[in-house]
Simulated assay, not measured.
Amino acid sequence: MATRDKTSERGRIQVTGFDASIVTERDELVDWQAAEGSKSGTSRRAKAWYRFKQNRSAFLGIGILAFMVFVAIFARPIEVAVAGQSIPIQPIQLAPHSTDTSLIASNTPPNAEHPFGTTQLGRDILSQVMVGARFSLSIGVIAVGLAVLVGVPMGAIAGYYGGWVDEAIMRVVDVLYAFPFLVLAIVIIAILGQGFWKMILALVIVGWIGYARLIRGEILSVKENEYVMAAKALGARDSSIIFKHIVPNAMAPVIVQATLNVGTIVLAAAALGFLGLGLQPGSPEWGTILSGGRDAVIAGRWWVTVFPGLAIVFFVLAVNLVGDGVRDAMDPQDTGGDTGGGFR
């Protein structure tokens, strides 16, 4: 009888691991791993923020930028026209004088009443520099923001689809890259004419190509990762894969480049204004102020160009300090102290 029982049990497959307690423990393990995976992105961001806080030069740049933004906002009251009436949004005026002409105080060197002196037309240079911060800073931020909004989708589409789509977009980028940045901007402004938004449009047209090429190179490597394959297997649309899964994981170098390019765009806008291709003459934009003071330098009135030039120098320096800090904080190759500092 015992032999028969052993014979009947022979050949049966015993499968273990379906015990309820074991399955519950396995589910808890999976939940823990998912929670750890969700925390990894937050951990990387926390490490990047920690590294950024250790960079004193970056915080010095933030301090300079914060001061300039404060001056730009409160230099002169801000009003909005609604139904033919002007409604003040910001009533404070820090600028000591108006930016209008006043021949009474023409060519005045720096003194107690005019700390930065006046121009040939009697405009107070300190007030011009303070009000001009609105134009220069807004040109830099708006132009870079629009260039990113144009360049990132174009580069993302080119890198994801490849083939003739990639060829068409990249050939346009190559053609635009054949022209020097400032020369191409001058040609576009010569066609469009002078003006605030026309200058921004010209800077966007010549600025988006850098972001398109940068994001394309990042996406060529990111799109082969496992989570992209999983999204495709689950039937996600291409637009969802590109802008929800791929682009967010490839934006770190774009953010660094955009931060640094704000200073470059402000410098380019000042150069265009100095060449007489920026805003209308008399506008309190830093480059336009420099353009109006070219003859003053020859006549020995140094203050007309020194103070607007210093404003440009300090702004570009502050942007570069912040940009370097952001680059060091988001560097995926950083191995100092912590690992996994990147955003991939």
Results as ranks from 00 to 15, higher is better:
136 S>T: 13
273 G>I: 00
148 V>R: 12
210 G>V: 15
234 L>G: 15
258 A>V: 11
16 T>L: 13
141 V>C: 09
46 A>H: 00
106 S>R: 10
188 I>V: 12
197 W>G: 02
139 I>F: 14
194 Q>N: 10
14 Q>S: 07
156 A>D: 13
103 L>V: 04
262 V>Y: 13
140 G>A: 14
207 G>Q: 11
160 Y>F: 09
291 S>T: 00
104 I>R: 08
174 D>S: 01
180 P>N: 14
136 S>N: 05
82 V>S: 06
304 V>H: 09
329 A>K: 03
242 I>K: 05
82 V>G: 07
34 A>R: 06
25 E>L: 05
57 S>W: 13
45 R>T: 01
74 F>L: 12
28 E>T: 04
329 A>I: 06
206 V>D: 04
175 V>P: 02
114 H>G: 02
36 E>I: 01
207 G>F: 12
67 F>S: 14
248 P>E: 05
168 A>Q: 14
90 Q>D: 03
176 L>D: 03
294 R>E: 11
143 A>D: 15
195 G>K: 09
31 D>P: 00
330 M>S: 06
228 V>T: 06
23 V>A: 04
27 D>F: 03
83 A>M: 10
331 D>S: 06
93 Q>H: 10
246 I>W: 15
108 T>H: 14
50 Y>I: 04
86 S>E: 09
115 P>T: 08
147 A>Q: 01
200 I>M: 07
336 G>W: 08
286 W>M: 01
228 V>E: 13
130 M>V: 15
153 P>L: 00
271 A>Q: 02
80 V>W: 03
273 G>C: 15
3 T>M: 15
35 A>P: 00
21 S>E: 10
203 L>H: 07
257 Q>V: 08
42 T>W: 02
340 G>D: 01
117 G>M: 08
128 Q>D: 15
116 F>N: 11
176 L>N: 04
285 E>Q: 10
86 S>P: 03
296 A>D: 05
23 V>C: 06
293 G>T: 04
292 G>T: 00
40 S>A: 05
128 Q>S: 13
327 R>C: 05
157 I>N: 01
60 L>I: 10
300 G>Y: 05
57 S>D: 11
106 S>C: 09
245 H>L: 06
45 R>F: 02
211 Y>Q: 03
1 M>T: 03
152 V>E: 02
20 A>W: 08
295 D>V: 02
54 Q>Y: 09
178 A>G: 11
338 D>K: 07
318 A>M: 12
183 V>L: 13
106 S>A: 15
122 G>Y: 02
261 N>Q: 01
207 G>W: 13
146 L>N: 04
110 P>C: 10
289 I>P: 06
2 A>Y: 13
179 F>R: 09
317 L>W: 14
128 Q>R: 15
146 L>Q: 06
12 R>Q: 06
51 R>Q: 06
38 S>A: 09
38 S>T: 00
81 A>H: 12
240 S>A: 11
79 E>R: 13
117 G>P: 12
212 A>K: 02
286 W>R: 10
38 S>K: 01
7 T>A: 12
116 F>E: 09
121 L>S: 12
263 G>K: 05
5 D>T: 10
334 D>R: 06
79 E>N: 07
83 A>Y: 08
83 A>G: 08
317 L>Y: 14
273 G>R: 11
291 S>I: 00
335 T>S: 08
309 G>K: 11
